[in-house]
Amino acid sequence: MYTDWNNHLHLLAASGLCIVYVAWRANLLRRLPLPLRHVPGPLIAKLTGNWLLFIELAGKRTTTVHALHGKYGPVVCIAPNELSFNTIDAVETIYASHHSEFRKAPWYANMTRGGVFNMRDPAEHRQRRKLLNHAFSQQSVNEMEPHIHKHVRKLVMAIEKRRKDGPVDARHWFRMFAFDVAGESFLGKPFGGLDCDEAPGYVADLDSAFIVWDLQGRFPILTWLLRQSPSKKLQHFFTADDRIYEYGADAFKDYLQRYGRSPQRKDLLTKLIRKEDGDGGLTDEQISGEISNLTFAATDTAAIALTYMFWELAQHPELQDKLREELRKIPLPPASGIPDHKELVNLPS
């Protein structure tokens, strides 16, 4: 019975595609007000963005969009109001320019609980960035070096310890490294990801939160109904973001208790904290939210970049030799045994 019904579904889907194709060939769909109909891309993308949802649920969005770029070129229509760019020239125009007027997609309004990441209005976003940018100056980042060096040593030890027993999941350890550095930088303490084989519970909450935000944006009523479920597993899943922000708030309070509002400690959070008698800047509540956002924003981006960089190096032994040759010429600080950033920044490679 199930097999017959499954066959019927496939037949209906195929029939629907045929109808769409015939209508397109007959010029019927081309007369519809589809603003991106002239941009290269699959026919279904001109009509609906929901087709990509099923691709995402199957975990194949990245490979699918990559394949579309291989077929259609550097700019591809993937939804009636959405384009995908695969060209370096577009990065500066869309993302890097401080005067960019491109708005973030509506999806971002459902991501996080406020803060710079979900501000879609360019003017509002620029104003919040002004209050955060000084924390990311080159001097501030360089002052974090002693803390980062500590975790670099831990990362090397964790990998060396496990590679004797066979292949190592490099992505996991790069993620734990980025995770602990983010915690050290924004919360004043690491999560302990490099100290054990299992990822901390915060990581599972982080992964769940992104799914919850996506569901909330696409299916708000369904998400609300699921949140009312008496199932403890469902309740735990749908409250993942609660725990993320609770952890950030508790970590911020703990930081203030340990270091005060004028801490001698050098980290990125130091630059954001308002003095007792100061005015302007971010409130404690805003800082707490931003550091929670920054912690998970920094983790996967850095981990993915490190994973693919080392994967690329693994394919090119000649690049490894070149890097080693350059690094051997750099004096190593006796305290850490790790090159300083100022020594690395001007290397040819």
Rank of each mutant, 00 (worst) to 15 (best):
W5T: 12
V20R: 09
N27F: 14
L29E: 09
R30D: 14
V39L: 10
G41L: 10
P42T: 08
L52E: 01
I55S: 09
V65E: 05
G70L: 06
C77F: 02
I88Y: 03
V91D: 09
A96I: 07
H98C: 05
F102S: 13
N110T: 10
G114C: 06
V116I: 15
P122K: 04
R126I: 05
Q127M: 10
L131I: 02
S137H: 15
Q138C: 07
V156Q: 04
P167Y: 02
D169N: 12
D169A: 01
D169I: 00
A170W: 01
A182P: 02
L187Y: 01
F191A: 05
D195A: 05
C196M: 12
D197A: 11
E198D: 13
P200D: 05
L206H: 05
S208A: 15
I211S: 09
W213G: 04
L215H: 12
R218P: 01
P220D: 00
S229L: 05
P230C: 07
H236L: 05
F237G: 03
F238S: 01
D241C: 08
D241K: 02
I244G: 04
K253G: 06
D254E: 14
Y259C: 10
R261Y: 11
S262N: 13
L268D: 08
K271H: 15
D277F: 14
G280K: 05
E285M: 03
S288E: 06
E290Q: 04
S292A: 15
A297E: 15
T299K: 02
D300H: 12
A305I: 13
T307R: 03
L319Y: 15
D321R: 08
R324Y: 14
P333Q: 09
S336Q: 02
H341F: 06
